[in-house]
């Protein structure tokens, strides 16, 4: 299990670097496929089965295909290889410093109290009206799609509906932007 986590985390990090450092845009897109697939596996390992499916369907299936389609349509030129100037050095240093700081903070329990494992009952803080009660370990049992759906369609119904409005607005906006202009 831990080995699987290590492999997935390493592959996600390396392919993320590939997205940024590839000269050809199509290689960036293919690296992005690997990144989002590895993150889908990570979600599965973290017991987020619903997000695993959503990640594969929406990201690997729709978003990256859209990217590849646009790359094939526009066929942009390869960029020059980024030179190791002051800007790049500062960027690399920023990546290392921020990652190390977050890692050290999480390791020392600053971001999150390790005594809090299993301490909060599911739905206690999130559900002040006691409309939805789950057993203590329901979330951690294999397959919590039902509990996620229960929360999504009761406590978070309004945000869920607003995202559908957002998708509609995005679709209309894309059609408006790409129409043949008549002027």
């Amino acid at each position: 299990m831990t080995v699987l986590f290590a492999v997935v985390i390493a592959l996600a990090a390396v392919s993320a670097l590939g997205v940024v450092l590839s000269r050809q845009t199509i290689y960036s897109a293919l690296s992005l496929v690997l990144t989002v697939s590895m993150l889908a596996v990570l979600f599965l390992l973290l017991n987020a089965q619903f997000l695993f499916a959503v990640q594969l369907i929406i990201y690997a299936g729709a978003v990256v295909v859209l990217f590849v389609f646009i790359v094939a349509l526009l066929s942009p030129d390869a960029e020059d290889r980024p030179t190791l100037d002051l800007r790049a050095v500062i960027g690399i240093a920023g990546v290392i410093v921020v990652t190390a700081l977050v890692f050290i903070a999480a390791r020392n329990g600053i971001t999150y109290n390790t005594n809090g494992f299993h301490a909060t009952a599911v739905g206690s803080a999130s559900d002040p009206y006691h409309t939805f009660k789950f057993p203590q370990d329901a979330v951690n049992n294999a397959g919590n799609v039902q509990t996620v759906a229960g929360q999504l369609f009761t406590n978070y119904l309004l945000p869920f509906e607003i995202t559908s409005m957002l998708l509609l607005v995005a679709a209309i906006g894309a059609v408006y932007l790409t129409r043949r202009s008549s002027r």
Binding site: L51, Y112, T120, S126, N144, L152, T163, A170, A171, G173
Partner: peptide, 24 residues
């Protein structure tokens, strides 16, 4: 790690927003 589904629900919202952003 905090025994809550809210992280997943919010991540789902983020995925929807990302899809909309990519389309536009």
């Amino acid at each position: 790690f905090l025994n809550s589904e809210e992280g997943q629900i919010f991540a789902f919202m983020v995925i929807v927003v990302a899809a909309a952003e990519v389309v536009v």
